[in-house]
Write a protein that binds this DNA or RNA. Structure first.
Length: 817
RNA sequence: GCCGGGUUGGCGGAACAGGCAGACGCGGCGCUCUCAAAAAGCGCUGCCCGCGAGGGCGUGUGGGUUCAAGUCCCACACCCGGCACCA
């Protein structure tokens, strides 16, 4: 029982009433005691981290976690702690039930906003970030969260960076063996293996050399390669690799971005700047190798369906077939010979007999060379009015490349295109069909080329209608297509008009027909069943300062060399100017320039990496913000561990599939609470890293997060005056009926986020001061279900205050104490 | 268009397994305390009719199942979120 507070006002309030002042006194006292006693220390089954008073681990392990915060300069508003309060309540409940609860909070401290804040304030990002973390710690401690304070860390801590870089090197030093059996619970085919094993197998000749024809028996092909060629083969197989392909270049941010960071209308998620496709040499991670496992293992985890479906959508698995069409030479070239082949991907190989033309993306390499003249039978509508295919194709390519993502979306449905002059041979019936280029076919998906079946696909049908191309229906529903049917028929049915001398699909259902035609294509070696994904490899390098440097140097042959583990971490150097080099947001021709490149002494180093001192160039990129958050859950197990990101025994105890089964058959964190905005970013990347670590034997759980819960957002009202300027929401008076006013003038109410610029921020500090942390916590938990978004109303908080007062009165006499 | 989630008083929301709809909180009204106000406490508060007793209506809309439906089934409308020319 605390002493009665000094009376600070002249009221006649009872001495022992539960007032904000008394609440604060109680809260601070207990917060100090919890810290002193280590009340919320979670006990590891081994090692230095024991429970309160040195107690050993007892009860079922229960690992509960929040998506860790980004220490922004603005400090917290009342929306931020919502999830932390919820996990605290759950964690305390489980602890009371006898579980060994692990609950801690670290800080995700690299990244663009921290860097931008530092640039604005003219201070080094480390200075501002550390100050922000301190402020956030203070605000959160006052909330009274039952966290284990020994387990906190920030992603910018050099010891944390060491292990982030170490994991990067594990990925860099791995390749994906699609045929290898996975051991243990991950059973199936395909896993990451150390790159050294690839080299051994190539040298021994037990594996063909990728990208090189020829029989590698006894390592014959391998032996014929120079050391540089060998390194190129190896580097081409790594799970972290550098290559030059179209990437998202964002001049406004001065960096390239991952697909997941670009919105559907072609802008950066952060800053909303235009993003351009450019061929640039960048680091990527081979997440596509894990596409199937990332999709399939969603069945093993307890996540909201919404998030699962977003991930499935993003991965975008389609099962179908690749089919190769011969492209014939035209009259002026070589009328007899084939000019090449055109490979397409289709999910409906059963409709091959209905393919009456082909379409390739404007960027397709087939268009680099086109026939000199229009072939016989070319219709004027196909040529775009040009004299030659070359002119027509060039004009269309120009047009297409000038289109922005927004324009392209707006035009979706309207079909434009032009005949390329090429003719392809439909392998099932020998018919020569025209090859068009059109922007409704995307280079980034499948093979960038399709067989068009206007009888079975609405887009192809629209194109066929616009360019007067023949329509053949090869699938009909039971009872046939209705009289006068127009448009494509994409439904179930049986194959018709689908037979040649060797194979007949007629009468088969869609699934059987697919299987039959794939068998035939494979027997003729002109196609095979295959699976295509929408997911692309993860673009992993950024041209910014405030991130983890790549633990890689480049040798005199311009090949990447890993920094040995013993030399980690590679610290961020001091550079004269850490500001990113940004550009006119619309200037697509600008070139990225990494701030780390501004320090020649750092960039050019002499190192002894095992074969004597040599000079190298450091990699000047930094990792994306996601790197640190890809594995932080592992670091809570013991942030001071010096031999591994996390000890195997601890990982098994806290994350392994287990007994109380709260985390499900895949293991992972028992409860992970955070916003839905990371559905295809952090949550996909972290799953990918975890599976690589699993393959390499560093973890035993199949998934990092067994159960996920998305909390809603606390929203708020904001008010604008007649000029549209925001006015301080706290000073607005009135209600819905009588209208709202600020300083006597009427204002407009809007509903949305809480934010500085909207002048409607309410801070936890104000709540501690006016009501106490417990009232604040009760209010947030009683506003409504956690997964819903709802409005903050400061005046409603008093209800929770009265509730606690009533509770208090039931236990304590307000007059006597 | 496809996928996911919703729709209950003036407002946020509750109703767990089909069993008294509207818990709890805000707001509103009345009262107590006070010279007064604030704070706090007590009572009332879904809508309509009625002085009242009381009556009627009521969970987006229309149907259905059931002794009984916010809850189950069918159809529709609207709102929010995600994806979208992905072959």
């Amino acid at each position: 029982m605390p002493d009665a507070p000094e009376r600070t006002t002249s009221t006649d309030e009872p001495r022992f009433r539960y007032t904000p002042a008394l609440a604060q006194q109680i809260e601070l006292r207990w917060q100090d005691l919890w810290e002193e006693r280590g009340t919320f220390h979670a006990a590891n089954p081994q090692g230095r981290l024991t429970g309160p008073g040195g107690s050993p681990a007892q009860g079922d392990p229960y690992f509960i976690m929040d998506m860790f915060p980004y220490p922004s300069g603005a400090g917290l508003h009342v929306g931020h702690p919502l999830g932390y309060i919820a996990t605290d309540v759950t964690g305390r409940f489980r602890r009371m039930c006898g579980d060994n609860v692990l609950h801690a909070l670290g800080y995700d401290a690299f990244g663009l906003p921290a860097e931008q804040y530092a640039v604005q304030t003219g201070q080094h990002p480390r200075v501002t970030t550390e100050a922000n973390i301190l402020n956030m710690r203070r605000q959160l401690r006052r909330l009274g969260l039952g966290h284990d304070p020994r387990r906190t860390f920030a992603t910018i801590d050099p010891e944390y960076v060491r292990w982030t870089q170490w994991i990067f090197l594990q990925i860099f030093d791995s390749w994906y063996d699609a045929d290898a059996e996975r051991p243990g619970p991950a059973a199936g085919k395909g896993r990451a293996r150390p790159i050294a094993e690839l080299r051994e197998e190539l040298a021994a000749g037990t594996r063909p050399v990728p990208g090189h024809d020829g029989d590698n028996t006894g390592g014959a092909v391998w032996a014929g390669l120079s050391e540089l060629e060998r390194r190129d083969v190896i580097d081409g197989q790594r799970l972290a690799y550098v290559d030059s392909s179209p990437v998202n270049w964002c001049p406004g941010l001065g960096t390239v971005l991952a697909n997941e960071e670009v919105t559907a209308d072609g802008r950066s998620e952060r800053g909303n700047f235009p993003v351009f496709q450019r061929n640039l040499r960048q680091w990527k991670m081979r997440i596509t190798a894990y596409a199937d496992r990332l999709a399939d293992d969603l069945d093993l985890i307890d996540w909201p369906d919404k998030v699962k479906s977003m991930q499935r959508n993003w991965i975008g698995r389609s099962v179908g077939a690749n089919v190769r069409f011969d492209v014939v030479g035209t009259a002026d070239q070589d009328p007899a010979g084939a000019a090449g082949t055109l490979e397409v991907f289709t999910t409906r190989p059963d409709t091959l007999f209905g393919a009456t033309f082909m379409v390739v993306a404007p960027e397709h390499p087939l268009l680099d060379e086109v026939p000199a003249a229009w072939p016989d039978g070319t219709r004027s509508a196909w040529t775009g009015g040009y004299e030659t295919p070359a002119e027509a194709v060039a004009a269309y390519r120009r047009e297409a490349s000038a289109k922005t993502a927004v324009e392209r979306q707006a035009d979706a449905g309207k079909k434009t295109g032009v005949f390329t002059g090429h003719l392809a041979v439909n392998p099932v019936n020998g018919e020569q069909i025209p090859v068009f280029t059109a922007d409704y076919v995307l280079m980034g998906y499948g093979t960038g080329a399709i067989m068009a079946v206007p009888g079975g696909d609405e887009r192809d049908h629209a194109f066929a209608e616009a360019y007067d191309l023949p329509v053949v229906y090869t699938v009909e529903p039971e009872g046939g297509l209705p009289e006068g049917h127009t448009g494509a028929y994409a439904g179930e049915g049986v194959a018709v008009r689908s037979a040649n001398d060797e194979i007949s699909l007629n009468g088969l259902g869609v699934a059987e027909a697919k299987a039959a035609i794939i068998g035939w294509l494979e027997s003729k070696n002109i196609g095979e069943g295959t699976t295509t994904y929408r997911l692309n490899d993860w673009l992993f390098s950024r041209q910014r300062y405030w991130g983890e440097p790549f633990p890689v140097v480049w040798d005199e042959d311009d090949r990447p060399v890993a920094i040995p583990d013993a030399m980690l971490p590679v610290d961020l150097p001091d550079v004269p100017d850490y500001a990113p080099r940004t550009f006119d947001p619309d200037d697509a021709t600008s070139e990225p320039e990494a701030p780390l490149g501004r320090n020649d002494e750092w960039v050019n180093v002499t190192l002894d990496l095992g074969d004597g001192p040599r000079t190298y160039r450091r990699d000047t990129n930094t990792m994306p913000n996601w790197a640190g958050s890809c594995w932080y859950y592992l670091r809570y197990l013991d942030p001071a561990e010096t031999t591994a990101p996390a000890l195997a025994g601890l990982e098994q105890y806290w994350l392994g599939p287990r007994h109380n089964a709260t985390s499900g058959p895949a293991g992972g964190v028992d409860l992970y609470v955070g916003g839905v905005e990371h559905a295809v970013l952090h949550l996909l990347y972290a799953r990918f890293w975890h599976k690589v670590l699993l393959d390499l034997g560093h973890v035993t759980s199949l998934e990092p997060f067994g159960k996920l819960f998305n909390q809603g957002y606390i929203q708020a009202y904001a008010y604008t005056d007649s000029r549209g300027q925001y006015v301080p929401a706290a000073e607005v008076e009135g209600d819905e009926q009588s209208g709202y006013t600020w300083q006597g003038q009427p204002v407009n109410r809007e509903y949305g986020k809480m934010g500085k610029s909207l002048k409607n921020v309410v801070t936890p500090d104000e709540m501690y001061e006016q009501y106490g942390a417990d009232t604040f916590r009760v209010y947030e938990m009683s506003m409504g279900p956690l997964d819903l978004s709802r409005p903050w109303n400061t005046r409603d908080v008093v209800g929770s205050q009265r509730f606690l007062q009533r509770l208090w009165r039931n236990v304590v006499d307000e007059e006597t104490g």
